[in-house]
Computed example of a mutant assay.
Amino acid sequence: MKLTFALPLLALLSAPALAQAPAATPAPLPINAPAAVAADLSNRWTIELSSGGTVVVQLRPDAAPQAVERIKTLTRQGFYNGLLFHRVIPGFMAQGGDPKGDGTGGSPLPDVKAEFNSLPHLRGTVSAARAASPDSANSQFYIMFVPRISLDGKYTVFGRVISGMNFVDQIAPGEPPAEPTRIVRATLGG
């Protein structure tokens, strides 16, 4: 049975979902990608937006190898091309990656196990969206507009915007937006 994202991300931030946080503290990771990770251009995820901007995300396979591999696999398949940002809350985050465009969909691939780590939810952080179960992430992701430390250790952080955050700020707001911003094309490399 395929799990869906029936619960919106904001609902997941309620007390019951927060109670599912891991008991162990993850090992500390550097906020910036290690030199070898940053030098590998396959760890750069480029998202061209319908609003005209381009966003580059530094992927962190050292922090969340399964989540990064899922993003890479789906990107190579062209999965994200044409998808919209279906849930954009100013002062919080922009969520996309759902083929249904309503927060309930995912890819045909199995869900990914949680990879909670010590990377903080800062402005530009990119994390895996999920349903109530920690192991229910699939294709959806969110980009933080502002820091939100209450999410730290409860969602899988797998990257951070290194270029084009000004374009992330311009993603059309709404739940769903009246005229949503779409991912025209997502690619890996340079």
Rank of each mutant, 00 (worst) to 15 (best):
S133F: 04
F85V: 04
T46R: 13
G52D: 06
N138E: 06
S150F: 08
A128Y: 02
I143K: 11
P108Y: 11
P177Y: 10
A132K: 09
G53V: 05
I143A: 11
E115I: 06
L83R: 09
N32V: 01
K154L: 12
P108H: 12
G164Y: 05
A186L: 08
A36T: 12
S14T: 07
L29S: 10
Q95C: 10
A63F: 12
P16I: 04
K113E: 14
L188K: 07
L74W: 08
T125H: 12
A11W: 10
S14D: 14
H86T: 02
M144T: 02
Q77C: 10
F167A: 11
D40C: 01
P90F: 06
P8V: 09
Q77T: 06
G153E: 14
G91Q: 07
E69R: 11
F145W: 07
N166K: 15
G174E: 10
P134K: 12
G91K: 03
I71S: 00
F5S: 04
S127M: 04
Q170Y: 08
P110L: 12
V184M: 04
Q77A: 15
R148P: 00
D111A: 15
P61R: 07
H121I: 04
G101P: 02
A172H: 03
M93E: 01
R182H: 14
N32W: 00
E48T: 15
P26F: 02
A19V: 03
M1C: 08
V161H: 00
S163V: 01
V157N: 06
P99H: 11
A39L: 06
A15N: 02
L151N: 07
W45C: 00
P134D: 10
P8N: 15
R185D: 05
A129R: 06
L151Y: 01
I183D: 11
P90I: 06
A131W: 09
A131H: 15
D62F: 00
A64N: 05
R148I: 04
R123F: 11
A186T: 08
N166A: 15
E175D: 15
V112T: 14
L119W: 09
I47G: 03
A6G: 14
G106V: 11
A178L: 09
P8Q: 12
R60S: 05
W45H: 03
I71D: 01
D98K: 10
